[in-house]
Design a binder for these strands. Structure first.
Ligand code: FES
Ligand code: FES
Lengths: 151, 151
DNA sequence: CTAAAAAAAGATTTTTTAGTCTTTAAATAA
DNA sequence: TTATTTAAAGACTAAAAAATCTTTTTTTAG
């Protein structure tokens, strides 16, 4: 459904929400190890997210990536928009040119409510809220049994 | 969500359900024109669907592709399984290795119910049922305003 | 029996997505 | 001030998906 790039990006931003703030930055090397994503590829993605102000970064010793207070107010939807664009959520499941209730394809009324609700969920919930939920319920963000609640 | 290949395949099988039977076969050229899909690519897909017994075909003059009575009893899910495989419906939205209620990623409980219900819809409805619904409600199967209820 | 029509098979090309590598710029600690 | 650390930038390569082209086989109408 989402591209690899977008999946990595979402996991990374949630990771940053959990692990970092202005005084606790983490380098791309560690992030990609913890999340088990290809390092240079993730670096590109983080650069992109930095350029669109979804994550923050500083260079040099003790530098790295982090989420500022403000950054945590963004949504997963913001990440999806930046990396994959909106098309997957507003285009027809069967690839037809228009996806509206007036020009429904044979699966439109099956698929459409899902897309709608999914989009709302991703748009209305902040990274901060996700982070709280992850910390309280111990949800998983990495491929291996990386316990998000360690340290 | 689905690959181009799979979208074309689903549209094609519904088209065949509407337009063809044992005595009314249609060649790939016409099908691809009506559905506005790349011709040789669609040909490949129809071959694949023929090999897995989801559509029928005969060679030679007046030959072409068609759905037999039996073929219409298959489901859209059968097509998806053949062309794209099941992974999109049973793997994690964030690309983690396991997608279960016991090992949920941060979006699992948002996404999972959708996938489940969507899968059921595609699995429990036959091509035949889709065709009836399309004919009754005039749903769209092509990019342009190809009126499925013509002829 | 032959020519034409159509699918089948499979090799090839193009485009997109994924991923890597190398160089440059900034920050900071010593 | 200088060496080191880290992100930024951009060129590059690899793999997968999408699409095309070419040849072969089957069918059947004449
Ligand atoms: S028209 Fe196909 S999903 Fe809406
Ligand atoms: S674990 Fe991620 S969607 Fe189920």
């Amino acid at each position: 459904m989402l591209s690899n790039a977008c999946q990595y990006a979402i996991r990374a931003i949630l990771y940053l929400g959990i692990q970092t703030d202005e005084n606790n930055k983490i380098g791309v090397k560690q992030i990609s190890e913890d999340l088990e994503t290809p390092q240079p590829f993730l670096a590109k993605l983080l650069q992109q997210l930095t350029k669109t102000n979804l994550v923050s970064s500083t260079k040099g010793p003790n530098g790295g990536f982090y989420l500022s207070e403000k950054d945590t107010k963004n949504s997963v939807w913001d990440v999806i928009k930046t990396i994959d664009g909106t098309s997957k959520f507003d285009s027809c499941f069967l690839g037809l040119s228009k996806c509206t209730d007036e020009t429904p394809c044979p699966v439109h009324f099956i698929v459409s409510p899902f897309k709608e609700k999914l989009l709302n969920s991703f748009r209305d919930k902040t990274i901060e809220q996700y982070v709280i939920e992850i910390q309280q319920t111990g949800k998983i963000i990495s491929l291996k049994d990386f316990d998000i609640l360690k340290n």
